[in-house]
Every structure is written in structure tokens, then in C-alpha cells.
């Protein structure tokens, strides 16, 4: 009988913690003494994916930098729900300036740290998808192009949630928003190329680009840690479902994020120097219907007369992603226990 190395099948690497793992291999979130960068008492909706993603990412960055971190936050839900006077939920050095300038403010901070010789202090910029792919893109592209020593994190919930769910450049096709209503002959958002920020970031040839979701914590934390090992401009794009804007159950936030990955609609990968270096293969390939049908923003595709043609177009997008990034589980024999970490 052949032997095989002991692997943690019970919860694999997928759960937050695992008593069977050596302490060094456990997630930051499993640590009772984690930073809790974004602390309790914030005013995010029930089941907010962005609140989760932000704490995951910043706690991981805090660990990776031994607490030597400055964070710049763009205007948006995250900023509004975390810092309404007279209370802040942040437990870190944090600044909010404007909607579209977080990457540039981060550049300024990084420059300040460099000029003061405090190179151990690292800078993270963060914004929602609006602040990243739309209004902040100019500053972000500039920051990338200069290769400033900033990790910029986009918490992508695929629309302007703060202002009441209006379409952004990251809103997917057919999704209903307040500015792409589910009316007319082609309800919901248009079918377009979308603004694929990770790929745009890669086009800048910056040292590190990665995507992640709140459904795979190990992967997300690993990417933050990797990002903090690198100097220069880095970009992390995290999918964070929004129960309000997506019309999903507050308890389904992580499930929906997981399905986004498992359908292929949200490819999870990392790239260094403009080249994809690793992907997270899909564990259980799932048809897009399962993902779409959980969300009120796609409700118009279902019901008595489902829009099979639209669903097929969305499936085609997923299939394209799977082919482009090689996400098919069959292509990865060792897709098992270590799972998410490519």
C-alpha cells in the first residue's frame, strides 16, 4: 500500500481555523488577538461583504507588516459606515480624503515614509469598485505607472452601493441597478466588455496583481501577505457581495462569493510582472444559474419565462473565463486538499 502525506481533509485549508494546523499556518482571522482593523459597531448592513473583506485584508496586512501600516480609504460605503462622527471603527492609522484620489493619497504617504526613512511603514489604499475602476482610475493608473510602493485593494461589489445601487464600470451584464433597471427589451445592465481592472492593472506590468473573494480566506490572506513582501505598485481585487445591492440573503454573502468563483464568473488568480502565475482552480464547477438565481438583481432572468438566451450569454462569459485562465478542475490533478492556494 502506498503511503500518502497527511493532509487536513477535515476542513482542509478552507475553514478559517483548524486546530490541527501548526499555529504559523493558521489564518490571521483565526487568531483571537487579530487586529480587528475594522472593529465592531460599524454601520454596515447585515451580512456586509465589504466589511468582511476589509477586515480580512487589513488584518492580514497588519500581520504582514507587524502593524506598521497606514491605510487610505476612498469615499464609499466602507468609509461612510466605518467613520461617522463621533465614532470610528478603525483600529489602525487611517485616512479618508476623497472618492477618486485614494491611490494618489497613498502615493503621498508612501513618499512621506520614504523621505523620512520609515521604509518599514507600508501603505495600503482601498476603495470600492466605483472608487477604483471609475472615478479613481486615473489616479490608480498613475500610481501603477510610477510603480509607487502602495498596495491598492478594490473591494468590488459591482455597483455604487453607497448612493443606492447605481451602475459602475464593474457592474456585470444583465444585472439590475437603479440606473440599469430591469425594464425594456434588454433589462438590466448592458452586455459589454466591462472594466476588467485586474487585467488593466496587469497591463501596467506592475509587480503583483491578484484577485480573491471573501469566500476563500486562506487564499485572500496569502495574497495580501505575498503582496506585502513585494515593493512597488500592487493590486488586489476582492469580490465582496453586497446583500443590499445584489438582492441576496444577508446570510448568503460568502456563499454567493463562492459561487462567483465556482461558476467561473469571477476568476481567481495572481499575476506577477504582467503574467498570470497561478490560478485557483474551480473545485466544483457550477452552472451560472445557481449563482444568478440567488440574487434579486438577476430576478428578471428567471420566473415564469426565464431568459435562457441571457443566461446562456452569461454562461458563455464564465466559460470564457474558465478557458482563459485554465480554471477547469480537470486541468489540476492536485486541486484537492490544499485547494484554494494555488
Amino acid at each position: 500500500m502506498t503511503t500518502q502525506p497527511v493532509r487536513f481533509f477535515q476542513v482542509g485549508s478552507f475553514a478559517v481555523g483548524n486546530r490541527l494546523l501548526p499555529s504559523g499556518d493558521r489564518t490571521v482571522q483565526s487568531d483571537a488577538d487579530r487586529t480587528n482593523s475594522l472593529d465592531a459597531g460599524h454601520r454596515a448592513c447585515q451580512g456586509c461583504g465589504e466589511a468582511l473583506g476589509a477586515r480580512y485584508a487589513i488584518d492580514a496586512a497588519m500581520r504582514a507588516t507587524a502593524g506598521r501600516l497606514l491605510v487610505v480609504n476612498a469615499t464609499g460605503c466602507l468609509e461612510v459606515f466605518s467613520t461617522p462622527y463621533p465614532q470610528t471603527s478603525w483600529r489602525i492609522a487611517w485616512l479618508h480624503s476623497l472618492f477618486g484620489n485614494a491611490p494618489a493619497v497613498a502615493t503621498g504617504m508612501a513618499a512621506a515614509m520614504k523621505v523620512k526613512g520609515k521604509t518599514d511603514v507600508r501603505v495600503v489604499g482601498q476603495a470600492g469598485d466605483g472608487g477604483t475602476v471609475d472615478i479613481g482610475f486615473g489616479c490608480l493608473s498613475g500610481m501603477f505607472e510610477r510603480n509607487d510602493d502602495v498596495l491598492f485593494i478594490c473591494y468590488d461589489n459591482e455597483a455604487y452601493m453607497n448612493t443606492g445601487v447605481q451602475r459602475s464600470g464593474a457592474t456585470p451584464p444583465a444585472a439590475r441597478t437603479a440606473t440599469t433597471e430591469a425594464v425594456g427589451s434588454q433589462p438590466g445592465n448592458v452586455f459589454g466588455q466591462g472594466k476588467d481592472l485586474p487585467r488593466l492593472a496587469m497591463a501596467h506590468d506592475i509587480p503583483y496583481v491578484a484577485t480573491a473573494t471573501v469566500a476563500d480566506l486562506h487564499d485572500l490572506e496569502g495574497k495580501v501577505e505575498r503582496a506585502m513582501q513585494i515593493r512597488g505598485a500592487r493590486y488586489l481585487h476582492i469580490l465582496v457581495p453586497c446583500p443590499l445591492g445584489w438582492g441576496s440573503a444577508s446570510s448568503d454573502t460568502i456563499r454567493v462569493a463562492r459561487l462567483a468563483q465556482e461558476t467561473g464568473l469571477f476568476p481567481v488568480f495572481e499575476a506577477e510582472g504582467g503574467q498570470v502565475t497561478a490560478v485557483s482552480p474551480i473545485r466544483h464547477r457550477t452552472p451560472v444559474e445557481e449563482y444568478l438565481s440567488l440574487q434579486g438583481r438577476y430576478a428578471h432572468l428567471f420566473g415564469e419565462h426565464p431568459s435562457l438566451d441571457v443566461i446562456a450569454r452569461i454562461q458563455a462569459i464564465a466559460d470564457h473565463n474558465i478557458a482563459r485562465y485554465g480554471l477547469d478542475p480537470g486541468e489540476h490533478d492536485d486541486a484537492g486538499p490544499e485547494g484554494g492556494r494555488p
Binding site: L70, V72, L95, S97, L98, G100, N101, P103, A104, V105, A106, T107, G108, M109, A110, A111, A112, M113, K114, V115, K116, G138, C139, S141, G142, E145, R146, D148
Partner: peptide, 23 residues
């Protein structure tokens, strides 16, 4: 640190970040 930015909006924003960080 002399930073060539992509817009005046960025120029003031970089200044904001630098100043807030004590420079």
C-alpha cells in the same frame, strides 16, 4: 521625493497623503 503625477487632482492628493503622513 519629487513625484510626477498624472493630473492636478493627483498632485493635490499626493500632497494630502504626504502631509497627513507628516511630510
Amino acid at each position: 521625493e519629487f513625484i510626477n503625477v498624472e493630473s492636478e487632482f493627483a498632485a493635490m492628493s499626493v500632497s494630502i497623503g504626504a502631509s497627513a503622513a507628516g511630510a
